[in-house]
Design a protein around this nucleic acid. Structure first.
Lengths: 237, 237
DNA sequence: CGGTACGTTGAGTCATATCAACCATAGTGG
DNA sequence: CCACTATGGTTGATATGACTCAACGTACCG
């Protein structure tokens, strides 16, 4: 663990700056609260593959992501993971378990090297209990995630794997965008894609190469180029 | 709509009484706030099949359930419904849309005749913004629902229909309990069961009669008798 | 009495999972 | 430097779970 050095990188780790630059809920904190946050938070760096926390464990705080990408997942039957969501700059993870004071119901693993702030539980609980407009933002945030989860449930329950693969590609475009050459700004293994869709790795591979034949996408290893977004939308219906 | 008469039934519609009797979040309101709730709420009765609100519509308030059962569902491709959850005595529905100020992301329909209180949006928002401990409860509530939604996603994505049917029966036992003769205290159509599981009606029918042959359950129309709970747990794994 | 909604069963089909083999790549250690 | 191993990706063959379609039974209702 010694590799995750605490440090004070003044260009990036000040929460007020971070809060204004991102859509973080922390922009609703007062000056004083932001100062406390700055004082008590722990800035950390993680590399791809690192685990931030494990499902089932009690956690003593939550994480605010400054850069990089983290996947949040549950472990299902015989260890197969189900990816619940990805978190990126400005987003917070593990706050749910902190607020409901339960063991983590998910695990979190780094997809792209990242810098995060670890913030002790008590701070979040205190802010929620004493700053009504911050509490309201947190409520809105959970409500939003809940709405997303409900759509996710409906999709998985009703759509075919083919439709869901197309849809996942589109939602990755929406969340992470494309670079100048139309490549998705997130690279996942085929297995990870399968674990979002809720299918077998081989099925994802087959469908991706089908989409490639149909000139909807191009593949370069893990990089996926989106050629025909409309076509994908049509498939995801 | 004239059938949903506003009325003042003093034995059941006073929120303070209701709040204490149930596990409602309203027990965290102050005396004054409870009085306002009593004054502004609208007591209503609905019958099986009635719709409380439709997905996509803006709503001007939310509902607290005094008695009866309501199903909350999303409408997926070609109209197939996906049941998200059931709400019963003491629970609130539609609060999510109110808090995030978005159109309803679900519809709500009465499964068992019910009595509910309709509470204007502004009241909820005001309470959340001014009563920190109430806000904290609402946060915990949404966090809890979020955790449930995440498990639901993992189950649907990874388990077989057979496992899910067994699991749904068990979760109905957990939520609604059994009567003296071990019958489930909620009756659903086969189609509704299918719409929880996320499968075809015929599949549910086949699996139920399979469970019946295996002496796990007994069937009397819509009433389901749970004989071997352990057996069901084993199947749902 | 016909109509409507729900329940049941059978047969056929298809999408998807599973199993197996193989290739490519990169990292490891002797 | 090479064999070794692990990991990820790909493809094919096969099996099967679950859906669809269709027919029919049942019950209730106006």
């Amino acid at each position: 663990m010694s590799r995750f050095m605490k440090q004070h990188d003044f260009t990036i780790s000040f929460c007020d700056k971070c809060a204004f630059e991102t859509s973080s809920v922390f922009r609703f904190l007062t000056r004083d609260e932001t100062d406390r946050l700055n004082f008590e938070k722990d800035f950390r760096r993680y590399k791809r593959g690192d685990i931030l926390y494990h499902e089932g464990n009690r956690i003593s705080g939550f994480y605010c992501i400054n850069s990089g990408i983290i996947k949040v997942f549950k472990t299902g039957i015989d260890g197969k993971e189900q990816i619940i969501r990805f978190a990126r700059k400005g987003e917070i993870i593990a706050y749910r378990s902190v607020l409901s004071n339960e063991p983590a119901c998910t695990s979190a693993e780094v997809i792209e090297d990242c810098q995060v702030c670890f913030i002790p539980s008590e701070l979040l609980i205190q802010f929620v209990k004493t700053n009504p407009s911050f509490a309201f933002e947190v409520v809105k945030l959970t409500c939003h995630e809940l709405a997303e989860a409900n759509s996710y449930i409906t999709d998985i329950a009703q759509k075919t794997v083919r439709e869901r693969v197309a849809e996942v590609l589109l939602s990755l475009v929406k969340d992470f965008g494309l670079d100048e050459q139309k490549y998705l700004r997130i690279s996942l293994t085929r297995e990870e894609l399968a674990n979002i869709v809720g299918t077998a790795t081989e099925s994802v591979i087959r469908l991706l190469s089908e989409f490639k034949s149909d000139r909807l996408i191009e593949l370069n290893g893990r990089k996926i180029k989106i050629i025909d977004q409309k076509g994908l939308e049509k498939i995801s219906s």
